[in-house]
Design a protein around this nucleic acid. Sequence first.
DNA 1: CAATAGATCATCT
DNA 2: GATGATCTATTGC
Length: 210
Amino acid sequence: MPGADPVPASRLKSMRILARDFYNRDTITVARELLGHVLHHETATGPRAGRIVEVEAYLGLNDLAAHASRGLTPRTKVLFGPPGHAYVYLIYGVYECLNLVAEPDGTAGCVLIRALEPVTGIEAMRQDRPAARQLRELCGGPGRLTIALGISRRHNGLDVTRGELTVRQWPEPWNTEVVASPRVGITQCADWPLRFSVAHSPFVSLPLPK
DNA sequence: CAATAGATCATCT
DNA sequence: GATGATCTATTGC
């Protein structure tokens, strides 16, 4: 059996959960400040968690790359709702992507979680992602990390300030260099630098920011 | 290492 | 009926 998790379950539970005020701000601030904190899913078979190292901000009506730019529809309802909730959608009929809703109730905005540094439940993640040969591939990509953590559309609309899916504050002070670069895989607003990643982290997804 | 094709379906036109 | 906020395997340089 390989090495133990960097963050054991007991330590995970002692970390404070980010409260709704954290998310009740402009989307870009929320996106940048999410870096370094820990996405935690308490599954039926135990905790799985990873430190957030890469995100993208998706704005409101003026951001044509954002689902919310089409206005209020059944799908985008959660994006226009209160902050601190999960927005999970199916992409290309195959993968699921996790976003965290920002901005006050009534204003759209969300942060796509793009990559994690795995810290808890690594063996369980590997079982669900056999294609990942390297640790860096386990949660390096929005579709990959949802599989690794067991997150799916059944989490859409969930409150992430309590319950099975939360974000926990990294306990130590952390000075990190944040890199801003264009978002991945979009055609509209393709030059807006709304992808934020931890400089020099080996867990950031491809293509690497410039 | 870079480019690309195929998988597959909810959502909106 | 077209279109993706992607991943993987495969091909080609």
